[in-house]
């Protein structure tokens, strides 16, 4: 049985038993190479689920849809290890309870989707620990290395150029499972903290504020860069922050659901006295 068939029957079973009220997965898209998020609530519809190498979107953010988890019922969702990390962070940030999440874990290896054993996010801690180790050894992105070699003036003008294309559609924010603020800082206009205009200053402000906000929280799923209609390499900013946090604090976001947010927690015995 193909992995797709296995997961379809698992989804069917979960819905039929009433273990979950919904399965969030991937379905066929407009073209043969496209996949789109779908929401299955009836076992009869489970055959619409697709699982293959084209399933790249991190679906975790859909769990935060207003009211979805309010009835304490469970939802199953197709997740890669980075998707599982997302759930851990959302739990640590009190946005959901992991008891309500059934994981349909998978991983894309080249052209194939591979099954990952486990049902609850905690079942994936071994895989995530492995990923952390690998991430530490992973060399920086080629463009990132070039950026490191630039002077700060050159680097600033690189980003100014990239951000000049930004049309302020906020697809990066909408696609990011970590952007769960009910009211984003850019939508606050009393006072207007961030310029909403899509000019040089407004674009820099927006993209940098978002990058800072994701430091120590981004799981590098790539939703933002994929969503950006003008192809700004947003992931480069977030990857850089990930490396910073990994080196400085040995912190890999989403290791488990009890992991404290690195930039929103402190210890009383912290050697930095300014904290208390």
């Amino acid at each position: 049985m193909s992995i797709q068939e296995q997961y379809r029957s698992r989804a069917k079973e979960l819905l039929r038993e009433g273990t979950v009220k919904m399965v969030i997965g991937y379905g066929a898209g407009t073209t043969p190479l496209r996949r789109r998020p779908i929401f299955i609530t009836s076992p009869d519809d489970a055959d619409r689920l697709v699982l293959d190498a084209a399933c790249r979107t991190n679906l975790a953010g859909y769990l935060l849809r207003e009211g979805l988890l309010a009835d304490q019922k469970s939802v199953a969702v197709f997740l890669t290890p980075d998707g599982v990390r997302t759930i851990n962070i959302l739990a640590a940030e009190s946005q959901l309870a992991t008891e309500q999440v059934i994981v349909l874990g998978f991983q894309i290896d080249g052209e194939n989707a591979r099954q990952l054993e486990g049902t609850r996010v905690a079942d994936f801690s071994g895989i995530i620990a492995e990923r952390k180790k690998k991430r530490k050894e992973q060399p920086s992105h080629e463009v990132a290395r070039k950026l490191e070699q630039m002077t700060s003036v050159e680097r600033f003008s690189f980003w100014e150029g990239e951000f000049s294309r930004c049309i302020k559609c906020y697809a990066c924010r909408a696609a990011c499972p970590m952007c769960w603020c009910r009211r984003c800082v850019v939508d606050n206009n009393q006072p207007q903290w961030v310029n909403t205009s899509s000019h040089t200053l407004g674009n820099l402000e927006w993209n940098l504020v978002r990058a800072f906000h994701l430091a120590g929280r981004c799981v590098e799923c790539g939703n933002c860069s994929e969503a950006c209609p003008v192809n700004i390499p947003l992931h480069l900013l977030n990857r850089r922050m990930t490396e910073e946090v990994l080196t400085a604090f040995d912190y890999y976001p989403g290791a488990d659901e009890h992991q404290e947010p690195v930039l929103a927690s402190f210890r009383k015995d912290d050697p930095e006295t300014f904290i208390l």
Binding site: Y62, I167, C169, Y170, A171, R173, A174, A175, A227
Partner: peptide
Amino acid sequence: SERCIGCGTCTYL
């Protein structure tokens, strides 16, 4: 529209 994420891509393009 269940999967709509509420960005402005469609309108701006």
